[in-house]
Design a binder for these strands. Structure first.
Lengths: 223, 223
DNA sequence: ACAAATATGATAGTAATACTATTATATTTG
DNA sequence: CAAATATAATAGTATTACTATCATATTTGT
């Protein structure tokens, strides 16, 4: 049952994998453990060889699922954003007040873990950290235009548009709704990174959260 | 004369290089050509071997200046931010109106090239593109805390604080001046990237610029 | 002017990375 | 029970990311 739900709500673009990791135990192991390993040693030091050793599997078997570690990162990112999109749709559906909707959206996009969800093999908290630390690297490449055409960033872009819709519903004549939305989504990750590594250039800390700041920011923009 | 000026205004932390590239022709060649090569093939594909071939020099000679390509990126980034800081200090010194000062600051931080400056061996436009595409990679690493302690990100953080000072001078009781400042600085790079690669999620294009958006944003926050 | 120091170049070598190919073996399925 | 499929094991290649050594050219200090 868990898995049926899972595959229904979290859809990853077919092009990013050679073989769908959801269809086998090895595949699920690759995904769940790559997450933990990237979180531990960082994306640069991460290799398929080390992952193979960790899961007691052969390097060559991993290559049957993903062309390389870049594609695996695209997979993890798609999974993350797709999951966020699902929670966003689900948890804001009932909210009619657009201000409350916006607040809820920012909260969801900033959240380390979702209260009502639970996936068998994915460590949500580790995934959240990996996205903060590594997501930019998935698009800051020379291949970004080709991969964008393939549709690998569709889910992320759709999320930006969903947030933008809420913004527009509050202030239809606001000229920078797209830029505000993409700034908030990117900024949420960035402020969380700063909180952990460059605390002198952010107000976010144990008391002040990223949602506090971005809520205030967006509301002021839409007044 | 140019070089005297240069070394006075652009100061890079000693720890990022093994030998100061400003002290020799080879060093200057390394810096200027690495810039062009990274801009052309991207940081991931960039190697010291390829750079050596490009400048007709040996790989091992380049290693005498920089420990590895990561340190070279830190160098280029420090150089860039130090240069921006200089221009900012210089061009806003005379402005007494804090709103005008803020506008000028955002303009400078977004500018591809500076009008009144000209460096013999640095291609400013290429450097600006490299910063947009690669700067995040300099701090999204497992070594960030150690390198931050060494002071490798001092210039960048100081720039954020300078922008924040202007913000505070306009609205002293604004609670999120640091986060706003760091969001703007990061956002300026991000919106320019989106304009080039993900135009559907930004309002920035040929007519609307990043300064247009961020000026509007910051002014609304400080009203 | 000359010895000493320094900078660069050339070559070689190592360990790790990023794969591809082949073959053997185990498991599933029709 | 045969055929198809998945995984594991091994080997091999080109490239990367260096380090070490030695020769040679250039600069500098006296």
């Amino acid at each position: 049952m868990k898995y049926l739900e899972h595959s229904v709500r979290v859809l990853v673009h077919e092009g990013v994998y050679k073989k769908d990791p959801e269809t086998s135990d090895l595949g699920k192991n690759i995904v769940s453990n790559s997450l933990v390993l990237i979180d531990t040693i960082g994306f640069e030091a991460f290799t398929f060889k080390k992952l193979g050793e960790k899961i007691g599997s052969n390097e060559s078997s991993i290559y049957r699922y993903f062309e390389n570690k870049h594609m695996l990162l695209l997979y993890l990112a798609s999974w993350y954003w797709s999951w966020k999109e699902y929670i966003l749709a689900f948890q804001t559906a009932e909210i009619t007040n657009p201000f409350q909707k916006l607040k809820k959206a920012i909260e969801i996009l900033s959240a380390t873990r979702s209260k009502d969800d639970n996936f068998a093999h994915i460590d949500e908290v580790a995934l959240h950290r990996v996205i903060i630390n590594e997501y930019s690297k998935s698009y800051l490449t020379k291949e970004v235009d080709a991969e964008n055409e393939e549709g690998y960033f569709k889910v992320y872009k759709r999320l930006v548009l969903r947030l933008q819709e809420i913004i527009v519903s509050i202030k239809p004549n606001y000229k920078y709704s797209l830029s505000l939305s993409s700034t908030v989504l990117e900024g949420i990750l960035h402020q969380q990174f700063l909180k952990d590594h460059f605390p002198t250039i952010t107000n976010c800390n144990e008391e002040v959260t990223a949602p506090d700041f971005f809520n205030d920011l967006v509301l002021k923009c839409l007044k």
